[in-house]
Design a protein around this nucleic acid. Structure first.
Ligand code: FES
Ligand code: FES
Lengths: 143, 143
DNA sequence: ATATTTAAAGATATTTTTGTCTTTATTTAA
DNA sequence: TTAAATAAAGACAAAAATATCTTTAAATAT
């Protein structure tokens, strides 16, 4: 469904969003440990999220990463789009170059509803809400 | 969503199922051409489908592949399971070792509904129905 | 029997994804 | 002004997925 890179990205964003409002930034090591991901690979992913303006980063002592903007307005869809691109939102399930009503693949009519369900879910799920669930101890970032 | 191997597998199964009941078997070349897939790679995939008893194969002149059993009873879920395994049906969206209600990832509650939708769709979509759509010219196996 | 046709099997190659290592740039604090 | 802490960037490596090539086995037809 999602690439491993994308899963790490989502988990990392949730972790950072779950930290106290006025606290320190989260460093790479801290993040990788919190989500149980390979550190150097995670670094690459965080860089991409910074490029796409979902995270801010700062170098030096007390540097690290923080959510850019309001976690209430950042959706899973944005994170997925940043790392995996938009094939998951628009691509054909069976690999046709283009998903379209005019030239549909054999499962288009069935698949489109599922894909729209997935897309809708991702678009309407914001970071804040799921980070809160983590803070409340009702969901988990690892194991 | 699906691996390329899995997409080829689904398309190949649909193509074979779309052929006339009492006709010849479909050869590898014919199948690969019909679904626009790399021939040798497709061969490997067909072998797997034969192993999993979704296809029958015969060597020699007039040999080739045919659907094993009734296309009405073969689902997309079976084909996907044969090639990609069942992580798509049961795996955690964020990569936790195990998807469970007891130790859910942060998107479990949202994702489960989508995954169940997808699973249900795959379980209830049979080869016969979608092959018919191809024969009726309302859906397409390539381009 | 032999030649031909076809799939199966296994080895190899290429590409993509995942992961690591090294160097550089920037910030902070002593 | 120097040392330490940190992320960024780029080179490199390993693993997995995709793809190809070669050899073998089986079936058919002559
Ligand atoms: S054409 Fe394949 S999903 Fe739309
Ligand atoms: S625990 Fe992640 S989807 Fe169920």
């Amino acid at each position: 469904m999602f690439s491993k890179a994308c899963k790490y990205a989502i988990n990392a964003m949730i972790y950072v969003a779950s930290l106290p409002e006025n606290g320190q930034r989260a460093g790479l090591k801290e993040i990788a440990k919190a989500i149980n991901s390979p550190e150097a690979f995670t670094a690459k992913i965080l860089q991409q999220l910074v490029r796409d303006e979902l995270l801010n980063s700062a170098k030096g002592p007390h540097g690290g990463f923080e959510i850019q903007g309001n976690p209430n307005t950042i959706t899973i869809a944005q994170i997925v789009g940043s790392i995996d691109g938009d094939m998951i939102f628009t691509g054909c399930a069976l690999g046709l170059e283009k998903c379209s009503e005019d030239h549909p693949c054999p499962v288009h009519h069935k698949f489109k509803a599922v894909r729209d369900h997935l897309t809708g879910m991702m678009l309407t799920t914001n970071l804040k809400d799921i980070a809160t669930r983590v803070n409340d101890g009702i969901s988990f970032l690892k194991y």
